[in-house]
Write a protein that binds this DNA or RNA. Sequence first.
DNA 1: TGAAATGTTGGGGCG
DNA 2: ACGCCCCAACATTTC
Length: 473
Amino acid sequence: MDKNLTIHWFRQDLRIADNPSLYFAARQGSVITLYIVDKQQPAMGRASEVWLHYSLKKLNRALKHKLMVCQGEPLQILTDLIKQYPVTHIHWNRCYQPWQIKRDQKIKLQLAKQGVQVKSFNASLLWEPWGVLKKDQRPYRVFTAFYKHAFSKAEIPRKSLACPPDLENYQLPLTTKIDDLNLLPKSNWYRQLISHWQPGERAAQSLLDDFLNSKLYNYKTGRDFPAFDFVSRLSPYLHFGEISPHQIWWETTSLNSSDNSQHFLSELAWREFSYYLLYHYPDIINQNLQPKFDHFPWRQNRSQLLRWQQGQTGIPIIDAGMRELWQTGYMHNRVRMISASFLVKNLRIHWQQGAAWFWDCLFDADLANNTLSWQWVAGCGADAAPYFRIFNPVLQGQKFDPEGDYIYRYVGELSKLPVKYIFAPWEAPAEVLQNAGVVLGESYPKPMVDLKQSRQEALSAYKNLTFEEDKPQ
DNA sequence: TGAAATGTTGGGGCG
DNA sequence: ACGCCCCAACATTTC
């Protein structure tokens, strides 16, 4: 009997449900499920490695302990497997980081020469980046235009696929253990970090259910308040493919079409837009999408960067955010914008240094989203915030954390300071500070920069930028 | 997915 | 009764 044997190569699709590559592999015969730690790949962030470890464990369990893991060079590993086993097909779901695209093209070509059928599928984007273009065949650079086109003119996202029935998972001898991949760091800091999370497909499903049942109804306004849990927190799961955007899309649209669900879908579309831009402009990892920013006078300042990273800026809402990141591998989106704006505008430190820190600390660290979001805040991205849009962290706190709940949660030094002064402790009368047991500069830092002055400096730096561009050459 | 500066309006206190 | 001032509240402009 000539039965098919397919290798399904897991990458950023660590799920069984709605996994096209796995689904079609299972339908045509037995399957080898494989995960490779690619030693050639750019370094993952440290938090991401921790997540990956636990996610692989969960996946392996769901596959009845038949997930093969190894590390090395994918082409070599796949070639060896073809030689040893009667492999007829190799499947994977597409990845979209520039290095992945390059790698996969090469591998596909080489494997085809060896007589196996190689197929790739779409598992992580609602719209393929090459499928959405302006009339002049160039990519969109404005979100709303992109979204309108994708939403109304592009192909409707496919519906979720079922779990593959009766996976005949081919057992391979001699597999590396997940523990051998050394994804966990030597020290124990990660235990506290991961304790806030439950990686894996099943947890993603229940987060989605929970979100659609009880949080979505207040999403549009609730999503701006970092103290409250009105966001989905699905971002890490989306990054690792523990849930598909297709499933989220269809479950949300079939629920209702309120403002809230529309808004949630548009956030999902921002993710698409980031992937889209990264596909069309792969240089934006290291380069400003708008070249006029190439000569922007960024400041190089290690000690200021460090204070920002450690949540010791002396501005409570920012410190709260940076500490949330450090302690939980996550930061609420509203606070990401505030703290990023502070780094890039008030401190005028290069967005790439902020992006690098987030990359290392976030469980949802994602090249497309992280890069594009930082460029957006810095003003050098597509459809970016105008240069003069500078967040005032005091006002933002008053507006979006009016009771100070979020700040109190992460900035314990100020726990006795009344709400009235929690957003700007330096403005509190000496007596109030004393009663709260706060000594500015000792128990809690003084603000590291003057907000008003640094705002002015940023404005004039950014303004020069536009003048330079307007000058005739 | 901002904030500050500036302009306008309208109600109430008060001579 | 009336005009004047003050100022909060809102609107518009500017960076």
